[in-house]
Amino acid sequence: MSGAQLNEEIMKTIRDSSDTDKAVKDFVIALIYEEIKDPSKWTEIYKKKIDSFINAMEDK
């Protein structure tokens, strides 16, 4: 991992997963990046992410 905190294998497994919506995959990846920061106010962050991903899906 060479000093980075994230296990790249997780990201690769998510990206390679074929039977899931891209939006869900991107959402989980976004959450992983948030989790690396170990957020104290996770509820707000998660709720915002849910809203923004649903809005993005509807905009498409």
């Binding site: 497994t13 997963s17 649903i54």
Partner: peptide, 24 residues
């Protein structure tokens, strides 16, 4: 919509978790 989205995410995360455990 939100509930459905969350459920999908939970199912996906569960699947990823099992896959990574196995791969590792």
């Amino acid at each position: 919509k939100k509930i459905e989205f969350c459920q999908k995410a939970v199912i996906f995360v569960e699947k990823i978790k099992d896959q990574i455990m196995d791969q590792t």
